[in-house]
């Protein structure tokens, strides 16, 4: 099978490579680009540990060919913390114990980020519905929901202060 020329912009940085069409995006990120934040949990499109933000949508990178993502803008957990420290979501997950082993956390935060972009003022029920594609085997979800609600509140306060 002939290799394809693929270009991806990941966390603002451009990457070009040759890849077989069957290469899954999660492997491109983890094995070629050494971006190992997105995890492989189930490999069967169920757990959401591999979630990345692809052209403004939360997607499971284990179920996308790198070829499909050719030309795309991708954001992973590595793109969250800035020079001033942790992103609000990361900070609130830490503060509210939104993680235990941490395996699901990169996917959780990447998904929660898109959820809050689309719905900056979610109810608890909307957070649970919007996070339904991400499984966690440790926390029982309670503190994940709490962390996301707290992040939403802080992001809104910061937005109001800026206005």
């Amino acid at each position: 099978m002939s290799k394809m020329h693929i270009k991806l912009t990941v966390n603002g940085q451009e990457h070009e490579m040759l890849a077989e069409p069957r290469e899954l995006l999660i492997h491109t990120l983890r094995e070629r680009l050494n971006i190992t934040g997105p995890h492989i949990g189930c490999e069967t499109s169920h757990c959401g540990a591999c979630t990345v933000d692809l052209n403004g949508k939360s997607v499971k990178a284990c179920t996308v060919f790198a070829a499909q993502a050719n030309g795309a803008e991708i954001k992973t957990i590595e793109g969250f913390a800035g020079p001033d420290g942790l992103h609000v979501l990361q900070d609130k997950f830490r503060e509210h114990h939104g993680l235990q082993c941490g395996f699901c956390t990169p996917g959780m935060i990447t998904r929660a980020y898109r959820l809050l972009q689309e719905n900056p003022n979610p109810t608890e029920e909307e957070v649970r519905f919007g996070m339904a594609g991400n499984l966690c085997r440790c926390t029982g979800y309670q503190n994940i929901v709490k962390s996301i609600m707290a992040a939403a509140a802080e992001m809104n306060t910061a937005k109001e202060a800026a206005e």
Binding site: T51, K57, V59, V64, L115, A132, G133
Partner: peptide, 9 residues
Amino acid sequence: IADPQVRYV
């Protein structure tokens, strides 16, 4: 149908 990630694509 499915979950948010699946519904995006």
